[in-house]
Design a protein around this nucleic acid. Structure first.
Lengths: 104, 104
DNA sequence: TCCCTTGTTCGACATTCGACGAACATCGTA
DNA sequence: TACGATGTTCGTCGAATGTCGAACAAGGGA
């Protein structure tokens, strides 16, 4: 297997795919956690789903180009691709994060 | 039936719903047309789908609070709720429109 | 009145999505 | 080597989504 997980290059990010990735409450939650905490391993997210489901959501985010996932020993470290996103879609991530105080 | 179509009030717009409404290429196309042309009747959109499908997409946009639809005789006039969206999610619509030059 | 234009609504259908548990792979460590 | 921790992948399920055509509703003219 590729020891590198699939990530789209920065210039290939598609708006519809990014918006779709962000349009799920669970994933929005994950993105907010990442914006707050910087980077997390997969187990650090407090989402009310099974780990296989979490893995699925992280994959959607990763394949849309929203997050970056790297191997760190037996763990995965997930972080926001904030710079790539902002370069491709200026203001989008900021607007989403500003509007997404979860419960609001 | 209600001669008024259902539209969520400005303060009830949900981010995930708005993002989901915008995450479809066809709907993104519609939103861009509206941003350019101001307001259109349903038939004015040049989208490659059947009219029933277009009607469905317009409903999704309307129920997410992205567009406003009013009756105008036998036609419907569809417009962007740009002010409501910007008030609720500052910068979001601008970012989407700036990034959505369709073919880009 | 009859008909045409404009959209909506109603099934039907295939596809996708989100969710789960079970099984598997990988790495670090005892 | 054996085991435990961490995630991924697989198979499955039900619900939602996108699409279409056909039927329907409402207005405006001829």
């Amino acid at each position: 297997m590729s020891d590198q997980l699939h990530h789209p290059p920065a210039e290939a990010l598609e708006l519809a795919a990014v918006l779709h990735a962000l349009s799920d409450p669970i994933r929005l939650n994950i993105v907010r956690s990442l914006a707050d905490a910087g980077a997390c391993n997969c187990g650090a997210f407090t989402v009310p789903v099974a780990k296989s489901t979490l893995s699925h959501h992280l994959r959607v985010l990763r394949e849309a180009g929203v997050t970056l996932t790297t191997r760190e020993g037996t763990q995965r470290v997930v972080s926001l691709r904030a710079e790539d996103l902002t370069a491709r879609f200026p203001g989008l991530l900021d607007a989403v994060l500003a509007s997404a105080p979860v419960a609001a």
